[in-house]
Simulated assay, not measured.
Amino acid sequence: MTKITFIQPDGESQTVEAENGLTVMEAAKLNDIAGIEAECGGACACATCHVYVDEAWRDKTGKAADMEEDMLDFAFDVREGSRLCCQIKITDALDGLVVRVPAKQF
């Protein structure tokens, strides 16, 4: 199992364990992480699973593909490290991943 820590805008954090092969969004939904709406269910057709990947993890999560970049145009407060967590596949290499949840989702 891979551990992922979600940090809320107020600094509160929740660490969950997730199976490899799932997405970070699926792990968030399975563990009732506040602020991850995932209205499209992971189809990369909205921006309601927007997160900020901690700088130390950006190389391991990779860069957003063109379709994801297009959807991020609709996200609130896009920053360096912004990703849609439905597009981040969980692998052993992501054990310990830290992401921050934005103050709001569109």
Rank of each mutant, 00 (worst) to 15 (best):
D32R: 12
I4Q: 07
D59R: 07
D66I: 09
E12V: 14
C40M: 10
M71L: 12
D66S: 13
C85T: 08
V78N: 04
G81C: 10
C40G: 10
A18L: 04
E26C: 01
T5Q: 13
Q14S: 13
I33Y: 06
T2S: 14
E69R: 12
V99L: 01
E80N: 13
I90F: 00
M67E: 13
L97E: 09
I33L: 06
K3V: 00
E68L: 02
D66A: 14
F6M: 08
A28I: 01
R83W: 05
M67R: 09
V16K: 06
L22K: 12
Q87Y: 00
C40R: 09
I4D: 04
A65C: 10
N20D: 10
V24K: 00
Q87I: 00
A27R: 01
I90S: 02
A27F: 04
E68S: 05
G41A: 05
M1G: 12
D70T: 05
A103W: 05
A56W: 01
T61L: 08
F76N: 13
F6C: 06
G81E: 10
L22G: 00
L30N: 15
V78D: 04
E26L: 02
L97G: 11
A56E: 15
D66E: 15
D92E: 15
T91R: 11
L72D: 10
F76E: 14
V16P: 09
E69S: 12
K104I: 05
E69K: 14
I36H: 04
G42C: 03
P9I: 01
L72K: 09
A64D: 07
E37S: 11
V99P: 03
F6E: 06
V101K: 08
T91I: 02
I36S: 01
G21I: 01
F74D: 11
D66V: 12
G21E: 05
M1Q: 07
E80I: 09
V98Q: 14
K60T: 15
E39G: 13
V24T: 09
D32M: 09
A45V: 04
L22V: 00
M1H: 10
S13G: 08
D66L: 14
D77C: 02
Q105F: 02
A45G: 12
K89C: 00
A45M: 11
A34Q: 15
L30P: 00
D73M: 15
Q8D: 11
T91C: 07
F76D: 12
Q105R: 04
K63I: 08
G21C: 05
T15H: 02
R100G: 06
D77I: 09
H50S: 02
G81Y: 07
D54M: 04
P9Q: 03
E26T: 03
M1V: 12
I33K: 09
A56V: 11
